[in-house]
Design a protein around this nucleic acid. Sequence first.
DNA 1: GCATATTAGTTACATATGTAACCAATATCA
DNA 2: TGATATTGGTTACATATGTAACTAATATGC
Lengths: 166, 166
Amino acid sequence: MEPDGLKTTFENQPSGAFDLEHFLPYRLSLLSNTVSEGIAQFYQQQHRLSVPEWRVMVVLGRYPDSTASQLCEHTVMDKVTVSRAVKSLLEKRYVQRMTDSNDRRKRPLRVTTEHGEKVLQEVIPHALDYQRALKQSLSHSEVKTLDQLMEKLLKAATRLNQQQQT
Amino acid sequence: MEPDGLKTTFENQPSGAFDLEHFLPYRLSLLSNTVSEGIAQFYQQQHRLSVPEWRVMVVLGRYPDSTASQLCEHTVMDKVTVSRAVKSLLEKRYVQRMTDSNDRRKRPLRVTTEHGEKVLQEVIPHALDYQRALKQSLSHSEVKTLDQLMEKLLKAATRLNQQQQT
DNA sequence: GCATATTAGTTACATATGTAACCAATATCA
DNA sequence: TGATATTGGTTACATATGTAACTAATATGC
């Protein structure tokens, strides 16, 4: 095992030395998947919501009358993913769709009071409970540190990816 | 009936108060996806490796003669996912498959020296470079802290999920 | 006003992934 | 030994997801 930041690309790197279990992208993926599974267990089984549907619901709860493209920005999901989630939510009557009379391409969406709000009222507390339980494994200052570290990493990764594109 | 550690809060939770952007599972997912994209850009486009294929390759590099079920453990992937990745890697001649003469159900796998090793020699340095670049956005002690926090969170999430199952 | 470009959103296609059913080899145990 | 259970691994099916092509409405430039 090598200390961080010492080896350079051009040294001989025996393939056996690569350790997936300590590889940051892998560990992030594992953690994210585990947490997502836990949080999704509830709203998927109790309310038949997919991850994209759940995201659309909570963003619409916070920003009513968002259009699909606004939802894309807030959820950082593909527009096709959003379109399909919205379609499914419309069928379930969890959201309703209007038309902007100034620009008839735009279709603002809103959580329905009859069905949608009820779902949110049940799912959100559970999601917050899960988050709270998760954070209880850390101290208050550790939670704050984690926030900062994730923020830094996200910025770094975004920058790195952009550099790679070119 | 509530699983331990997931007590429901019956406080009134207006749905507009939920903030996806600061929700830990969402942020983890966003960070993980961004990092994965960056790391995958290289081995997917240069070497036509999927994420499961890449994982199988590096684990086989470290633990030669692993069977599919051992790969499942090391990669924490579904056995179907592993089976498909192996099938594809066999077709590309990146790995070869033997048969355990003591137990003919077992099919140990090995990275081929001709093609597979060459791929690993190219892909691993790039992966390590990416990780290094990512970690350079943090101080040395922050990297260590991040490691510990992620470890704690993973354990907590795993425990929470198991409790929920019941 | 008309041709073209852009934007909002959906559909078609190919690929990926998980669940369950499945086959083959081995282990268990009466 | 023979019936049954378990294990290693693959296949079938349904679902999910991204890329590209598409329709419809609006904006832009002449």
